[in-house]
Amino acid sequence: METAAPWLLGFLIVQRLAELILARRNTARLLERGAREVAPGHYPLIVLLHSAWIATLLWFGHDQPVHPGWLAVFAALQGLRVWILATLGERWTTRIIVLDAPLVAAGPFRYLRHPNYTLVVAEIAVVPLALGLPLIALLFTLLNAAVLAIRIRAEDRALRGST
């Protein structure tokens, strides 16, 4: 699938931009309802990591053939993304926003504590692999693990109410 890389990367960019718009809208609504943001200090690291990942994919992967098997895994992951977004609805955001309401325990949250992070971990590895870039998959998987260690610790602390 030689000409598919621009389509895959274009989809990824449009998807991420749409998610940022949705997240910004949801964050504003949650804050209006009395929610509060917790531990915003690491958020620029997340933005930097994801921006660098996409830029690196564009630089090294724009003209690479797309491996159909990895593309199929990526497509399957999009089903998980839709399930997560549908389950969280207006509570989905890219920041740690705590609302005085019960935690969501439906959908993928019945099976995974942090399904969105599981999805992102998988995508950060799968997209470069789909483009034949295993070293980029490894590098950004390691960087993402470091950022997620900070993020998940902060989120768990916030959800326990001990921020």
Rank of each mutant, 00 (worst) to 15 (best):
M1R: 13
E2W: 08
W7H: 14
W7P: 13
L8I: 12
I13N: 04
V14H: 09
L17F: 09
E19L: 06
I21T: 06
L22R: 15
N26G: 07
R29Q: 15
A35M: 09
A35G: 08
E37V: 02
A39C: 08
P44R: 06
L48M: 09
S51G: 14
W53M: 11
W53T: 05
A55K: 05
L57V: 10
L58I: 15
W59Q: 11
D63N: 09
D63A: 12
Q64N: 13
P65Q: 04
L71W: 02
A72G: 04
V73L: 09
V73I: 04
F74T: 09
Q78N: 02
L80W: 01
V82M: 03
V82L: 12
A86H: 12
E90C: 03
R91Q: 10
T93A: 01
V98Q: 03
L99M: 11
D100K: 07
D100L: 04
A105P: 06
L112C: 09
N116F: 02
V120T: 06
A125T: 12
V126F: 07
V126E: 01
P128N: 07
A130W: 03
A130N: 06
L131V: 11
P134C: 09
A137H: 03
L142P: 10
A145Y: 03
R151L: 14
I152T: 01
R153E: 15
R153C: 09
G161K: 08
